[in-house]
């Protein structure tokens, strides 16, 4: 067994509108299943936060994860302008009070852009809180991620749910924006982990499995088979996520 545990930054609870694999609605079962793979904790999103409304999903998520050691909610957030969602300073206060240390956005599904006039206040508040923001690749173009990263250099951004076809653009974003990170569940690039470690540093990669849709062991295997040092594996497996969640910089 490795000398480190895995912390999974890409977990989902709840029934999806269109199932595309396994579904998990029981947080305790999730914890038990992941433990078999050496995954001791993680960041969890809820299907309702994406598919219904952030407030509904966030409330459900925090309740379902209550008492599940090692697993934390990732709140879905959106701008406040319509009055359906808290203003930014109120939001970060609620996050801090609830022990919520990470957020995500669904600009595509929820119909808002991340440009400064719409989401600038929200992003600045998250930046001040030091909470990493997860950007699902299907929801946010890399171009937008880069603009956001430049506008908010102290906001840790984690691009998640990616594919294997984006290196030509991704490398530019990683090179230009030190606050951008990559969650690895979809980045199935031959020697891709090794190459990013060599060019940009292992600090830029965040372990995630996309459980329960994907087999969690696939992402574990991606790290364990990678031709990188044990120190780099440990950073990817859990060290980098711990650093970001502790507000430890970009």
């Amino acid at each position: 067994m490795p000398g480190f545990e895995f912390f999974d930054a890409n977990l989902t609870l709840g029934k999806p509108c269109v199932p595309k694999g396994r579904i998990q609605t029981d947080a305790e079962l999730m914890r038990e299943e992941l433990a078999r793979f050496g995954i001791a904790g993680g960041l969890v999103r809820h299907t309702l936060g994406a598919e219904l409304h952030p407030l509904e999903g966030n409330e459900r998520l925090s309740a379902e994860l209550s008492g599940i050691d090692g697993f934390e909610p990732v709140w879905a957030v959106m701008p406040h302008w319509t009055g359906e969602f808290p203003e930014s300073h109120d939001l970060v206060g609620r996050m801090a009070a609830g022990g919520v240390r990470a957020a995500t956005v669904y600009p595509g599904r929820h119909g808002f852009p991340l440009r400064p006039s719409v989401a600038g206040g929200l992003l600045s508040a998250l930046e001040e809180l030091g909470a990493p923001l997860f950007l699902p690749a299907g929801e946010v173009a890399l171009e937008t991620a880069e603009e956001t990263a430049r506008d908010h250099p102290l906001l840790p951004l984690v691009i998640c749910d990616t594919s294997y076809r984006l290196a030509r653009e991704l490398y530019a974003v990683l090179g230009n924006c030190p606050n951008v990170h990559l969650e690895i569940s979809g980045y199935m690039v031959p020697r891709g982990i090794e190459d990013i470690c060599r060019r940009f540093g292992a600090e830029r990669l965040i372990f995630g499995s996309r459980y329960p849709t994907f087999i969690p062991g696939a992402a574990v295997a991606a790290v364990m088979y990678a031709a990188i040092s044990e120190r780099e594996k440990a950073l990817i497996a859990s060290g980098n996520a711990a650093r970001l969640l502790a507000g430890g910089g970009r």
């Binding site: 199935m188 690039v189 031959p190 891709g192 087999i215 062991g217 696939a218 574990v220 295997a221 991606a222």
Partner: peptide
Amino acid sequence: DFSFISLPQQVAKVAF
């Protein structure tokens, strides 16, 4: 599909 995509995850599908 290796090396179109990476190999470890594909092997893991069967292994697990």
